[in-house]
Amino acid sequence: MATSSRCNKATLLMAFAVAAVLSTASRAQPPLQYNFYGSSCPQAEATVRNVTEGIIAKDRTMGAAFMRLFFHDYFVRGCDASILLDPTSSNPQVEKKAIALRGYDAVNKIKAAVESVCPGVVSCADILAFAARDTAVVSGGFATFDMPSGRRDGVVSNFIEVLQNIPSPILKLPDLIKNFAAKGLSVDDLVTLSAAHSFGQAHCSFFNGRLYPTVDPTMDATFAAALKTVCPPPGSGGGDPVVNNNRVTDPNALSNQYYSNLVTGQVLFVSDQQLMSSNYTAAKAANNSANATAWMGQFAAALVKMGGIQVLTGTAGQVRKYCNVVKS
């Protein structure tokens, strides 16, 4: 009974938070709407959900891959699936060449399943948004929430724009705030969405500066010592191993455990630990650590908000048949 009550409370909080964000976003982006494919492809969201769930069930690391693809797509040109485009002879330097990400084949699999029931109707951009929402449900135990749709796919993908827009893991807090603000996201959104680092993996090179030549004093000493057994000093010839973002509990669960790790100095990136450098963001982190239900509602709302900024709608862009190539 207590568990049911908590679930009901989480569902209500998510519904209210998402509705509030959508009310604001809808004024800026009226074409995005709930159940956009209700008439044109009523099976769309269920198909994406079923395939996404199946992929994560077979490989739990894919939840973080889906979430990271959505984030990287949004942060460069808005949610237009530009991150999915393969290089061509006329454009060899596309976004996916700028950073190593996983999940491209998985998205193609979802797209193929959707095409089999509704050819040429559902955009790859919406598939990324639905898969991110479904990842929160599968990998985070969230109550399901609505993700508005109606996005169209872009035809431009530029390597340089990744370097210009994706926030670096070594950014200090003022620059992180500025980076998120440029995309229409608040300080609260920054703190909330940073918990995506509760799952997934990272190469040692992204945080080795906190280990060598001396350990960052804001990092827990025992945590740092364990990392140094895996991550060799730069230039030592030891390669660039991969470690779990969350080395304290389940590395494949999206959760508010991130904030407990943050408070205790057990996070990898400078950009993570920077959330403890101001009273406001540190207080937000402490609150999120203490209240999983409230954080889940905020995360769902921030995910919806992120997915509604700088989108292509109406007749802009196109609906690709294959997510990795522009439709000619």
Score class of each variant (00 low, 15 high):
A25C: 10
Q29G: 05
C41Y: 01
Q43K: 13
P42N: 06
D59Q: 07
T52M: 11
F16Y: 15
T47G: 12
A44S: 15
D59L: 00
S40N: 03
A46K: 15
S40W: 06
C41M: 03
A65Y: 06
A28Q: 15
R49D: 15
A17L: 02
F36G: 01
A64I: 04
S40C: 07
G38F: 02
F70C: 05
L22R: 13
S26P: 00
Q43Y: 13
C41K: 07
R27D: 07
T47K: 11
R68K: 14
N50I: 13
F16T: 12
Y37N: 05
F36Q: 04
A46D: 15
T61P: 03
T52Q: 14
N35E: 10
A65D: 09
A17P: 05
F66M: 12
A46F: 11
Y37I: 06
P31Y: 00
A64V: 00
A44Q: 10
A28D: 12
T52R: 15
Q43N: 10
I56Y: 07
V21A: 04
V51L: 02
S39C: 14
S40A: 10
P31E: 00
P42I: 02
P31Q: 00
R27V: 12
A65S: 13
T52E: 13
P30A: 00
A19Q: 09
F71G: 03
F66G: 10
S23W: 08
G54A: 06
T24K: 05
E45Y: 04
S39H: 14
P31I: 03
F70I: 11
V18H: 08
A19N: 13
A15Y: 06
A20V: 15
S23T: 11
F16P: 11
A17N: 15
R49Q: 14
L32H: 03
A19R: 07
L22I: 15
S39E: 15
D59T: 01
R27Y: 05
V21F: 02
G63K: 01
F70A: 11
V21T: 09
Q29M: 11
T24M: 05
G38D: 09
A25L: 08
N50E: 13
V51D: 01
E53P: 00
S26C: 08
I56M: 07
M62G: 01
F66R: 03
A64D: 05
A19V: 09
C41W: 04
M62R: 11
L69D: 07
F66W: 06
V21C: 02
P30S: 00
I55W: 04
A15W: 05
A65W: 02
F71S: 10
T61Y: 08
G63S: 03
S23H: 10
V48G: 09
A15Q: 11
G54V: 01
V48W: 04
